[in-house]
Amino acid sequence: MQGQADLFLGLDEAAAPIQNPVTSEIQIKPQVQKRALPLDPSDFERAAHVLEGSGLYRILRRLHPRPVVTSRAAIPGQKLAVIVDTETTGLDHTRDEVIEVGMVAFSYDEDGSIGDVVGTFNALREPSVSISPEITRLTGITSEMVQGHTIDLDAVEAFIQPAHLVIAHNARFDRPFCERLAHVFSLKAWACSHAEVSWSDFGFEGSKLGYLLSQCGWFHQGHRAVEDCHALLEVLAAPLPGNAGCAMSHLLRSARKALLRIWAEGSPFDMKDNLKKRGYRWNDGTNGRPKSWFIEIAEDVYEAEMKFLRQEVYGRDVEPFTQRITAFERFRATS
């Protein structure tokens, strides 16, 4: 069997003169020179295993998208999810425009096990304004690339219609843009793989998609919509450390929970630090929501939160405006 070192190095013996320090005689001793040997592509994976086995290297493999299974029998209990990603001319969904949308549809079980990819969608769109150099730097998309392109919204509707869940890695960004693009997105339950998976609890030092993908052992051509969708699918499917299952199972558990959003309207100004320390966030009222501090909590801690507000914030009996937020409302621009 070919030795491990032979995968990478060859030996050239060349005569090299050396001087004996005792007799001053000149001797000729073969000199070993190392040179890289070209690897046959069939050896690449074996070479990667050798490097990984040394404990001195970590290997990233190029992500190859899963094949699309177009003909498959329905499996009882399985549902359909769609991962979506948008590239836009800016960050403001009320003013900026979608220039690319990518989607990957896949089946999944109730426990989060991921099945087949059943469809992909990718389309460019020419906006009404020129694409800025900054957006081109971030996305790789130029004004020339999108010239004359439109997104077939009927095709988007047909692609999304069967989905039980829409997933984005920053749903608070993507959902408002998607809902402005096509009404069908507003009818679906949404989940955010960035906000609804506690990545730090599993030892990850960040939650950006490229970082998560590299920790799973892959690299890809980032910031193009459908490529990012394929990347997120592999991140959701990969096993988490400590036999914690896969990220998809944790995402589903979070998406299934309803939250209560409590608005501490009219709270005393000198209570702002107490509210902030407890996890309340400020809303300035420009998005149609109350101009107020608010918090989102699980339903089972509602009474404890009411006790805190009544005793430590208002000093009286109050019934603050409270909304029940499910996956159908979460991450909307005005929810």
Rank of each mutant, 00 (worst) to 15 (best):
W190K: 03
R62F: 12
V197I: 15
D273A: 10
S42F: 13
M271I: 01
A15H: 05
V118P: 04
Q27R: 14
W199E: 07
I114A: 07
A105P: 03
V68K: 07
F106K: 01
Q147I: 01
G245S: 08
Y57C: 08
A163H: 00
A163Y: 01
R180H: 15
E45A: 15
A158Y: 12
C178F: 07
R224K: 15
N283I: 02
R289E: 12
I83H: 04
E205H: 15
W190F: 13
T142C: 07
E100C: 05
E100I: 04
D152C: 06
A333K: 06
W218P: 05
I297R: 05
N283E: 15
R35N: 08
A255E: 05
E296H: 00
E296R: 02
M271E: 10
F219K: 01
A298T: 14
T286G: 06
G10C: 08
R46K: 15
T70M: 13
I131A: 03
A5M: 11
F185H: 05
D109F: 00
M103Y: 06
G119V: 10
A48Y: 02
E299T: 12
T322D: 06
P67S: 15
N243W: 11
L60S: 01
L260M: 11
G102K: 06
V117H: 02
P76W: 03
A5S: 14
P162V: 12
E52G: 02
R281I: 09
R61P: 05
I151P: 01
S132P: 02
P76Q: 07
I131S: 04
P67I: 14
A225F: 08
A244Q: 15
D154L: 11
Q19W: 09
R66M: 04
N243E: 15
V69R: 14
S132N: 11
P290C: 00
T89C: 08
A5Y: 09
F8M: 07
G90L: 05
H183M: 10
K29A: 13
V197A: 03
P41V: 10
G148D: 14
V32L: 15
E13S: 08
V118L: 04
W218A: 09
A48K: 00
A189S: 15
E87H: 04
G55N: 12
